[in-house]
């Protein structure tokens, strides 16, 4: 397994999908309740996408899977995502 990076690296891939910079958005972790900017999360890239984990408790916040015709974003680990305007 490759070494992890952090949520800053999601800015490019997520710019394909969202018109705002989601790395500045704050997520509340369902596992531990921590609220942090997505930039602070831990990101584990793999050939099909990214697993994004809470920097405090390591629970999965988000999984991004890139498929030939679509991108699947699973948000099982977030209670909410607050996007600055």
């Amino acid at each position: 397994m490759g070494e992890h990076v952090d949520g800053n690296s999601l800015a490019g891939p997520l710019s394909e999908l969202f018109a705002v910079d989601l790395t500045m958005a704050s997520a509340r972790c369902l596992g531990c309740g921590d609220v942090s900017e997505l930039a602070r999360a831990m990101v584990y890239p793999d050939p099909t996408g990214y697993v994004v984990r809470c920097s405090q408790c390591d629970d999965v916040l988000m999984v991004v899977v890139q498929e030939p015709d679509s991108v699947c974003i699973e948000l099982r680990g977030m209670a909410w995502l607050k996007v600055p305007r």
Binding site: N8, A11, D21, T23, M24, E37, A39
Partner: peptide, 9 residues
Amino acid sequence: LRGPLGGWF
């Protein structure tokens, strides 16, 4: 190139 990216750091 794609960017500039990232508004946090």
